[in-house]
Amino acid sequence: MKKIHITAPAKINLCLEVIKKYENGFHEIRSVMLKSQHIFDHIDVVFENEHDDIIISCDYEGVPTDEANICHKIATKYFEKIGKRVGLNITIVKSIPPLTGIGGGSSDGASVLLAIDEYFGFQLNENEMVAIAAEVGRDIPFFLQDAFAAKVGGAGEKVESIMNFPHVPILIVCPGGEIATPWAYGQLDEKLWFMNDEKRENMTENLAKIHTLDDMVPYIYNDFAFVAEEKYPVIKEIQLAMRSFGARAVSISGKGPTVFGIYDNVDTVQKAQKIMQKKYPDMFISRY
């Protein structure tokens, strides 16, 4: 029996553009994504030789613990790829609210995939790992790379690390509620009339080249913003409050409903956090 403990960080999309729908139903995106320095799920993976079942437990009500769980799916894909199995007991302690646009399930899946590959002596190369990850979840490949920031393209499988991307103070507020990925993309297919327009400015490419907070601000953008705001109008209220208390830029992460604000310094973001926590005591609020 061997046990590996892993931390699975949250993510935010500083910029997220949906630019095409593929014939297979997936969408081509452009995004700059950051890993959190403060928000993590904690996962223990115990490898068992007495059985070859995948057993999952989670402390967050509503997270599936059967074959529908991303960790179960990705472990199964890995075993199929290498032609071997081992028993897994996976315990997930959640800090990242599910289905809120900050990558909890995807990060968990990537972390379990890395742990299993470590157990088997790193049998798969980077391309093989990305292929497994992309088949299970389109955000998962991002979490396989080490860099803090990355430019993501394709349907999520193309990940290019961004070196020396500036670290800036970020506050996130999750107003509660969930936005399912199929529904969100369906809304864009119906309403985002300029999705396929080649004349669109490449916000992601511009953002990936910046060096300062001032350079960053104009390129904080998300195509899902209007969809999320229609479903959860409180998003606009939170964004206005963030701006009122010093945020230089605000947006949503992923498909939402999580809102984030970017601040000039730690002192300003800490003051904003205290104010927001007092106003919204039931919401998940954290420095990023």
Rank of each mutant, 00 (worst) to 15 (best):
H5I: 06
I12G: 10
I12R: 12
L14H: 09
E17F: 00
V18I: 06
I19P: 11
K20F: 07
K35L: 04
Q37P: 10
H38P: 06
I39S: 12
I43A: 00
D44I: 01
I54F: 09
I54T: 11
I54Y: 15
I56H: 11
Y60D: 07
V63K: 00
T65W: 06
A68G: 11
N69I: 01
I70W: 00
G83D: 14
R85W: 01
V86R: 02
N89P: 00
T91Q: 04
I96D: 11
P97H: 02
I102R: 15
G103C: 11
G105D: 03
A110T: 01
A115K: 07
E118G: 09
Y119L: 14
N125K: 08
E126G: 02
I140E: 11
A147H: 08
F148S: 01
V152T: 00
V152M: 02
G153T: 10
G153S: 08
K158C: 02
C174I: 02
G176F: 12
I179N: 03
Y185K: 07
W193D: 15
M195G: 00
M195D: 01
I210W: 05
D215W: 13
M216R: 15
P218Q: 14
K231M: 03
P233Y: 09
I235A: 11
A241H: 15
M242A: 07
A249E: 13
A249V: 14
K255I: 14
G256C: 02
P257H: 14
V266S: 08
D267E: 12
Q273F: 08
K274R: 10
